[in-house]
């Protein structure tokens, strides 16, 4: 990413001005135009390490890259939506570390003899269930949003790749349609998962409806 899509790297770090060596931001608040930073907590040198495995290399800033691309590719806005790229990167990484922490905690927690009744044991694994999905989705949002306005970096822009015969109404219909269809499926899925989770591992699958459902649960 540092070599082939430097704008994405700068955007996910909210690096507006070129830095050498580059610092890693823990928290950055930008101003309302999204073009300047107002305040941030930074760890020095770490960004250079993430980008090129040494502590001294230069990470180009968004403003410098924007000027460079305008010269190379013509007039236009080559800066992706920084609020999204910045925070999705933090979510992805943060959840990753939380998952690692949860795994370590779990290894420690099961050493106690009565761990099954612990309050934390009911909450932590359940909460951790959603983290991989959210982290993964954030990562994908970062990838796609960070590459805007390109669909193929340097070669094809999104506005050139759209089918010319499609109207916004068409796209809206299909977008809403897919959301409704997948949303309904999610409802059905959650219903089924909850049902089978409550029934426990000994529940048998339903057969004919003329037979009484043989749902043996291990309820306490």
């Amino acid at each position: 990413m540092y070599e082939s899509q430097p704008m994405k790297m700068a955007a996910l770090e909210a690096v507006w001005e070129t830095e050498e060596p580059a610092s890693f931001s823990l928290l950055t608040i930008g101003d309302l135009t999204g073009m300047q930073e107002v305040w941030s907590i930074r760890i020095p040198y770490v960004m250079s390490f993430l980008a090129c495995n040494n502590f001294t290399c230069e990470v180009k800033g968004v403003n410098e890259l924007q000027a460079q691309y305008e010269q190379q590719y013509g007039h236009g806005n080559y800066v992706p939506l920084m609020v999204v790229t910045y925070w999705t990167f933090r979510i992805m990484m943060g959840f990753g570390f939380i998952m690692m922490g949860a795994a370590v905690w779990f290894l420690y927690a099961i050493r106690r003899p009565d761990y099954e009744n612990s309050k934390w044991m009911k909450l932590v694994p359940f909460g951790a269930l959603f983290l991989p999905y959210l982290a993964n989705a954030s990562g994908w949002i970062l990838t796609e949003m960070g590459r805007q306005p390109w669909i193929v970096f340097g070669l094809l822009k999104v506005q050139d790749a759209v089918s010319p015969n499609l109207t916004p109404v068409d796209l809206l219909i299909s977008l809403i349609g897919y959301t409704v269809v997948y949303g309904s499926l999610a409802v059905a899925m959650v219903y089924l998962m909850k049902k089978y989770a409550i029934a426990g591992p000994d529940a048998t699958m339903h057969e004919s409806v003329d037979v009484a459902p043989a749902l043996v649960g291990s309820q306490d």
Partner: peptide, 23 residues
């Protein structure tokens, strides 16, 4: 586009129903 979108909705409905039906 829209005709194929409807086609896909039909195929999705059908596919899911085969799987969820007996659950």
């Amino acid at each position: 586009y829209l005709a194929f979108f409807l086609l896909l909705v039909g195929l999705i409905m059908r596919g899911i129903s085969f799987e969820y039906r007996s659950k």
